[in-house]
Amino acid sequence: MNSGIVSYGAYIPFYRIDPESIGRQWGRNGADVGKALGVKMKSVPAQDEDAATMAVEASRCALKRAGIHPQDIGAIFVGSESHPYAVKPTATIVGEALEATPGLMAADMEFACKAGTAGMQNSMGLVMSKMVKYALAIGTDTAQGAPGNALEYTAAAGAAAFIIGLENTIATINHTVSFTTDTPDFWRRGGMKYPSHGGRFTGQPAYFRHVVSCGKELFSLAGTAPEDYQFAVFHQPNSKFPSKAGKMLGFSQQQLSEGLIVKEIGNTYSAASMIGLASVLDNANPGDRILLVSYGSGAGADGFDITVTPGIETFRKGINKTIREWISNYQLVDYGTYAKNLKKYKMEGE
């Protein structure tokens, strides 16, 4: 019996900054940079938000939508590269805030931007082996880019939570497959505040090789072709990469557009492809087929072949806020506020 998505929720912070404001700070033409990356603005966390608070909000939303009792959650996986603590799990904070403790397993996942989908795969294994009734997989990040670095134009904040189970699913996960190699395209050493990356090396040998190979593996495993899917969602560090990867795999722009949210909120790292999937599910119909391929630097890609069930129609009545509504509800901030919120200033005594 296949496992599937029983519910989902998301969280996007209220604040945004546009590329013009970032470029102005560093003597660059931010508008041109934004245009080249295909990013109009990116989400910015408030001072009191972090990966844990966003994970809690997204998860509470997912639980409420499906009316699942928190004590039925047997496992929580929180994927992030911005866990608030270096040592002390985010998953325990989330578990306590959901009132899912103490009878559950909880673990933090790390694999750059695909830690959340790694949690989905772990969740599938647990529910299919009937070790747990439901498992909660979360992707959440308050992504950091060093001041003046190109990453600043896209590194954003957001969270998405998916409850995986066997019954009452709104979408069946038919197949999943991963493609993994040791490829040092993006990293952050222990104790360092900001990540480093290999510039253009992040493209062909890293993102494109892994995402496209994973997509092809998935086609082979599922016996499908691009035309079998109504929607395709890819990890989205900018607009160009997923569009190009989709084209390389044979998808049209129309198949990609609903899940391409990077233009409006930037790259939410572990949450990026999962929020894209949530956006698609907000609009999908029973029988629609969705291809999801995440990507995590270092490097790997997780692919999912998903079919929407008739359960989506009843479920949708419980959705009080769609991804598009989250996206359209924002306030722009200046670079100073953005830098303060992300603690880019070193304060006296620190």
Partner: peptide, 27 residues
Amino acid sequence: SVFRRVSEDGVSGTIHYGYKFVLDHSR
């Protein structure tokens, strides 16, 4: 109510999470 960071015990101490509120129409 929403779940937020309320305070922290310095840069190396524990983080105190808890409730805050947001206006219904804004969030």
